[in-house]
């Protein structure tokens, strides 16, 4: 008997507070879904990195002035072709274009400001809502070699 095919997509929506074990648990749940859709190792590394950076930015910058129990909302939608992830914080938002380019020579020795550029480098598409407190990112599965 042929094994029955799995679902053609999986979605998840969850809130998480600034608690490392809770964040790690949520990231792990999303990465388990990505693995079930057989994304290769390089893709999983890229998605894991972008997800960690997005959630970290939400707490470190978005929730800078909020109590630690203020929740960040994470949504994930995974199918065979792409992984879409949204991270929304409760902060005032920011203007992404104002972040200095950390790869310029004059910024190389500055310790901050690399999270967003890494997300942009590894994901296929990155968008923000007008307020700047919700990041939506998409990873397209690369063509098979």
């Amino acid at each position: 008997m042929q094994p029955s095919p799995g679902p053609d997509h999986e979605s998840l929506r969850a809130t998480v507070t600034a608690d490392r074990s809770a964040v790690a648990g949520l990231v792990s749940r999303i990465m388990d879904i990505v693995e079930r859709f057989n994304y290769p190792k390089t893709s999983r590394f890229a998605i894991h990195l972008a997800l960690e950076e997005a959630v970290s930015n939400a707490f470190r910058h978005g929730h800078k002035l909020l109590p630690p129990d203020a929740a960040v909302t994470v949504e994930a939608h995974v199918d065979a072709r792409r992984v879409r992830i949204a991270v929304e914080d409760q902060g005032p938002g920011f203007t992404p274009d104002t972040i200095p380019d950390p790869t310029l020579d004059e910024n190389l020795a500055k310790p901050d400001g690399r999270g967003l550029m890494l997300i942009r480098a590894y994901m296929t598409r990155v968008d923000f809502n007008p307020r700047g407190n919700r990041l939506e990112m998409t990873y397209e599965r690369p063509p098979s070699p």
């Binding site: 950076e53 970290s56 470190r60 310790p111 901050d112 690399r114 999270g115």
Partner: peptide, 9 residues
């Protein structure tokens, strides 16, 4: 895995 915060450190 290494985060941008680790790079900063």
């Amino acid at each position: 895995h290494l985060s941008s915060a680790a790079l900063g450190t």
